[in-house]
């Protein structure tokens, strides 16, 4: 099952999710906490670019991101004529109002959620947002920019719920909580889809394989080239035979005393893996 990292800007956006999945508070560092249970983690970054860069950046530095899908969910301003308050949208293009740069999530799965583009602004918009196409928020662009260093683009999902028509800044818990809560069942179906989809590919060598490879390198004192060749052979063995190569653990008890011995054993292993 894939791991989901849910990112919100406001604590009130995260609250209903924490409650629904009974996530527990954990500390990343003294000042940075998050919520987690099993395969769901929720991190609140705070509003705006600076907060996202600081908190999300620090958090991702230490997260093992393989097998993880990042979902950014939160409220956004929408256009009266093309969006509806309380409706959840999937974002297919994010433009940074500040830099003009566009970010494009790779939408590969069927979510059934209507799609729209979004602009990330630095200040709340209250003039109706004539100049913007689609929705506006204050974090998505910088979340994308930060996270794309760690995740493939198709593992970055942006969900926004329209809270206003860009005529007021709406961020008090009393206003945000019901909007989020009303969309929990939709979010739940997306979480189930993402967790169970084949969207994240398992690497050819699993952790156990990698460990065995490292142990073999250490025991046999392989050169850099030999290490590379061995990895290549092991990958080929798994790819073609889809088999277990635990017989290699027998070589973990061998003592190598000379270059010749090492070459002999290395050749023997390669022959077995090529057979």
């Amino acid at each position: 099952m894939n791991h989901l990292l849910i990112i919100t800007a406001l604590q009130s956006e995260a609250e209903p999710i924490i409650k629904q999945y009974q996530l527990e508070k954990k500390h990343h560092s003294e000042k940075l906490f998050y919520f987690q249970r099993e395969r769901i983690t929720c991190l609140t970054t705070g509003v705006g670019e600076k907060n996202v860069r600081k908190r999300l950046g620090a958090f991702l530095q230490e997260l093992a991101c393989s097998n993880t899908i990042l979902i950014n969910i939160g409220i956004a301003g929408g256009k009266k004529d093309s969006s509806k308050i309380g409706t959840m949208y999937l974002i297919n293009k994010i433009t940074s109002d500040k830099s003009g740069k566009a970010w494009l999530p790779d939408i590969l799965l069927k979510t059934g959620i209507p799609e729209v583009q979004l602009t990330t602004v630095s200040k709340g918009v209250t003039d109706g947002g004539e100049k913007y196409k689609g929705l506006v928020d204050m974090e998505a662009a910088v979340i994308f920019e930060t996270a794309v260093e760690f995740f493939p683009v198709h593992c970055l999902v942006f969900l926004k719920i329209v809270s206003d028509y860009m005529d007021e800044v709406l961020d008090s818990p009393e206003q945000v909580l019901p909007i989020m809560s009303n969309n929990l069942s939709k979010l739940d179906s997306i979480i189930t889809l993402m967790q169970n989809s084949e969207i994240v590919r398992a690497p050819l060598l699993n952790e156990q394989h990698e460990r065995l490879l490292t142990d073999l390198n250490n025991t046999l004192k392989l050169t850099e080239t030999q290490t590379h060749q061995l990895k290549n052979k092991i990958e080929g063995y798994i790819a073609i035979k889809d088999d277990d190569f635990s017989f290699l653990s027998n070589y973990l008890h061998i003592e190598i005393n000379s270059k010749q011995e090492r070459s002999k054993i290395f050749y023997e292993i390669c022959t077995k893996l090529s057979s």
Binding site: K93, A102, D106, L108, V148, P152, V153, H154, R201
Partner: peptide, 20 residues
């Protein structure tokens, strides 16, 4: 989806060819 240049989407970093 309108883009300024096809490379904005075609050359994005972090794409997964196999999944695409």
């Amino acid at each position: 989806i309108y883009i300024p240049d096809y490379k904005t989407v075609f050359n994005r970093s972090g794409q997964d060819f196999i999944q695409q």
